[in-house]
């Protein structure tokens, strides 16, 4: 059964102005990702991987080209429309977690649900926290959690609305090896459970090889796309 593409980038470019002159971050990217696929985007530092993810999430507007994600033409949407698009379709996991420091773990997870107007926001949030093994820490603030725990909260927040796409930007960059593996295992388990499209930004080739496909980015261009064999999970239970 042919898979439909959920992300379509056509000749996408991004140029930023600086005092030293224009900087071409992305140069004519053509790319598509199928629904339910896991994709690893790799490349050296400064290659444009994070920017590519920002474009897909509607966090940045391209200077040129077309961006279609989950049937929405992102370059035509206003700022608030983009925010609502993210709320309804995208989950994002950041390298620096980006939890709201004045909210508890439970409240952080509930944010996207509350913004969607869900009356059962906290009940759903509690379940998601439990699913990442932090059911007992729901009333703790980020400052009271370890790095791995914070990232698990961020992961729960990213998937609580069962988004169509989960974007993860170097999700294990600030974590030690064991914790990082735990996070990755959780992400893949959640992908399997809901068939969420997973886009994983990483500089780690081994991690990228766990995905269905690896896209290599260098100097703002896609230089290689490689289909992988079935991903090997470490099988960490919750």
């Amino acid at each position: 059964m042919p898979q439909s593409s959920i992300v379509n980038l056509k000749s996408v470019s991004l140029t930023l102005k600086s005092d030293a002159g224009p900087v071409n971050i992305l140069r004519g990217i053509d790319m598509s990702i199928n629904a339910g696929e896991t994709v690893g985007i790799v490349g050296p530092s400064g290659s444009g991987k994070s920017t590519l993810m920002s474009i897909m999430a509607g966090l940045e507007r391209p200077s040129g080209g077309e961006v279609s994600v989950a049937d929405s033409q992102l370059e035509t949407l206003s700022e608030d429309d983009l925010a609502r698009f993210r709320r309804d379709n995208v989950g994002i996991v950041f390298q620096s977690f980006h939890l709201i420091p004045t909210m508890t773990a439970l409240e952080n997870v509930a944010i996207p649900l509350e913004l969607s107007g869900r009356t059962d926001a906290f009940a759903v949030a509690a379940e998601k926290l439990k699913s990442v093994g932090l059911g007992e820490r729901s009333s703790h603030y980020p400052s009271q959690l370890s790095g791995g725990e914070q990232q698990r909260v961020a992961l729960a927040r990213a998937v609580c609305t069962e988004p169509k796409i989960l974007l993860a930007d170097e999700p294990t960059g600030n974590l030690d090896g064991a914790t990082g593996e735990l996070i990755i295992d959780l992400m893949f388990q959640l992908h399997d459970a809901h068939n969420t499209t997973l886009v994983l930004i990483t500089h780690d080739d081994d991690l990228a090889r766990k995905c269905d496909r690896v896209i290599r980015v260098e100097d703002g261009r896609v230089i290689e796309q490689e289909r992988q064999s079935a991903p090997q999970l470490e099988g960490h239970s919750l």
């Binding site: 925010a83 993210r86 980006h98 939890l99 709201i100 944010i111 913004l115 969607s116």
Partner: peptide, 16 residues
């Protein structure tokens, strides 16, 4: 700034 940007990532509008 980081909190505001995070909220926007999560779907909050500018008016909110």
């Amino acid at each position: 700034i980081a909190t505001i940007a995070t909220m926007k990532c999560l779907g909050a509008s500018s008016s909110f």
